[in-house]
Amino acid sequence: MDENNTEMDENNSELASDEIQSTPIDNDSKAVNIGSGVRVDGRIEGAETSDVSGTLTGTLKSSNININSKGAFSGDMSGQEITISGNVDGEINSESYLIVNNSANIKGVIEYASLQVSYGARIQGTLRHRGSVQSYTPISDDEIKEDEISENQESDQ
């Protein structure tokens, strides 16, 4: 019994030392979680799910994005399904669903395919529907003529 025990202990200690030496197991979940009170400044790409309860400044590219009610984001974000419950200042680009909850406060440009906004949410900025033909005001002939005239005048001088 005693011998067995010592052997076990040796094995255990070996295992324990191995664990300390080896690097932690790789996280393949592609998840980003920024807790409340945490500030991140930079660029996040290739994430599958991103949960922001803290403050994130920069660029965020992730399939699923959640800006929670305590979360704040400023910069550009793009993803498939985006849910906003907190503060956003910047650009939101959603390829499928964008859900804006009543606690949200958004300032900036929103590009969306499907948008749902709950009563009470504050949005200040521009909404653009993906797939809609954006109307560009074509340059009128008069403006072109004026440009030509001014160019001619410059060349004359």
Partner: peptide, 17 residues
């Protein structure tokens, strides 16, 4: 002052709160 948007709607607009 208060807005509620159902999904499916097509909006290309500037919003002023």
């Amino acid at each position: 002052q208060n807005i509620d948007i159902q999904n499916g709607s097509i909006i290309n607009a500037d919003l002023f709160y």
